[in-house]
Amino acid sequence: MRRALRAVVLGGALHFKQESRNPFFLWIVICTPLVYATMAYFLFRGGQDDATLVTASLGSALMGIWSLTTTAAASTLGRQRRVGILELLVAAPTPFWLTIVPITLALAALGVYSLATGLIYVTVLFGVPVTIANPFAFCVSVLPMILSMGMLGFLFCAAFVRFRSSWMVGNLFEFPVWTLSGMLIPIAVLPVWVEPISWFVAPTWGMSALREAALGNASPWDDIGMCIALSVVYAAAGGALLRVFLRSALRRGTLALS
């Protein structure tokens, strides 16, 4: 248990270092919120109130995180393979899922840049200082939000590992998750039958927790609980899929090849 924790924390920290030195990744997490917050600002010009703007800034920040997670986390194995490290990771005596989870978590954690950019930018652009109603709950909410993104990324990484262009398959889910999780579009606007689907998307709860903590309308703690519970489910499912994949890759000899 302590070993697993060490592997996640230390592995996560090192991968955070490695990935945050990738200009393209940084660019995604920083630029996406800018673009979508701006777009929301123009589009909302009709009737804007502070709550809408705060939600838009948080939402566009989370969009940035999800964008990176779909493009990068879903193709984690492919990227490790391209640089010739995948085999070394498999050959190490640490369980494979424990090696991969820190990578997708680190990518989601890069989202703190998104969050910071989104909040600062909105303050500057909208001229509305963003006030956080419940700072403690807000800070606490960030962790399960990142966890949920990282674990969804991990699930995708495991589920799409057999696709040669897993990053493209990952991209498939960029807009759907944006749409479903209430990041920029309130779920109430969507067709009624969509709402139950959004309950199974962990970032929905992460977004909701952050929004409640920021606006102070409702308690964020239920959302946080749901967020963590779903993340655990994702992790378990991803771990199981990865196990199946690994066995078949060793059997088929496809680990090093595409």
Partner: peptide, 24 residues
């Protein structure tokens, strides 16, 4: 269909609903 068509369709849907949400 999976990689080329669906992403574009989801993009269209996303922005259409964003339009509805913003009152456009």
């Amino acid at each position: 269909i999976g990689v080329m068509v669906i992403p574009d369709l989801t993009q269209i849907v996303f922005f259409a609903y964003l339009g509805r949400a913003t009152g456009i």
